[in-house]
Amino acid sequence: MVKNKSNYSTQNTTHKKRTWYIILGGGIVVAFFFMAHKIIPLGLEKDKDGNITLSPNRQTKLNKELEEIDNAEQYVLVAQRSGLYPCYSCTNEQKTIYLNVGEVWKYGVTRKGLQGRYPRENFGVPDLNYFQQFIGTYSECLKKEKIKIYNYPFLPEALARDILLIRPPGNKYDS
C-alpha cells in the first residue's frame, strides 16, 4: 500500500511537471508568433502593398485636429449688466468684483465647435456677452489673447477702479 502510494506520488509530480513544460513551450511558440507578426493597433492598418498606414478614421481625426489648430478665434466676455461677477484675479480673498455694463470679464481663445452652449461657453457665469475679436491660427489667437490680458491694467475701466487687477477678473492665469 505504501509502495503504491509512493508510485502515485511520483507519477503525479511527473505529470504536473510535464503540464508546466507544455504550457511554457506553448507560451514560447505564441511569443515567437507575435514577434514575427506585429499586432496592429486600432487606428493603423495595412494597405494593399502591405505597408502600415493610418486608418481612414484616424486620418479624418488628424485632418479635423489640424483644421482646428488653423481655425481659432480670440474673444472677450463682457458684462451684460452692472453687478457682481466672480473675480479669479483678485487678491486678499476677494471673490467677486463689481463690473459696469460693457466692462471686460475675460479674454479667451477657442478652437472647438461648441454648439452655442451658453452658459457653458461663459464658464457658468450668467449675464455675459461674447464678442469675437480676432480670427486666425491658434498660435496667432493665443498671442492676441496674451497681449490683451497683459494690457488689461491699462484699460480706462481698470485704471478707474479702487483696486488694481493684474489681469481681467475672469482670467485665472496669464493665458
Binding site: 472677450v76 451684460q80 449688466r81 455694463v101 460693457g102 452655442g116 451658453y118 452658459p119 461657453e121 461663459n122 450668467p126 449675464d127 455675459l128 456677452n129 461674447y130 464678442f131 469675437q132 475679436q133
Partner: peptide, 27 residues
C-alpha cells in the same frame, strides 16, 4: 435674483456689432 431668473439671453457676435445687437434689452 440670478437663480430666480428663468430666461437668460446672450450673444456671440463680431465685436463691431455691439451695441447695435444688445441682448440685455430683450433680457
Amino acid at each position: 435674483s440670478e437663480e430666480a431668473h428663468q430666461i437668460h439671453i446672450s450673444c456671440r457676435i463680431a465685436e463691431r456689432l455691439f451695441p447695435k445687437i444688445n441682448p440685455a434689452i430683450f433680457s
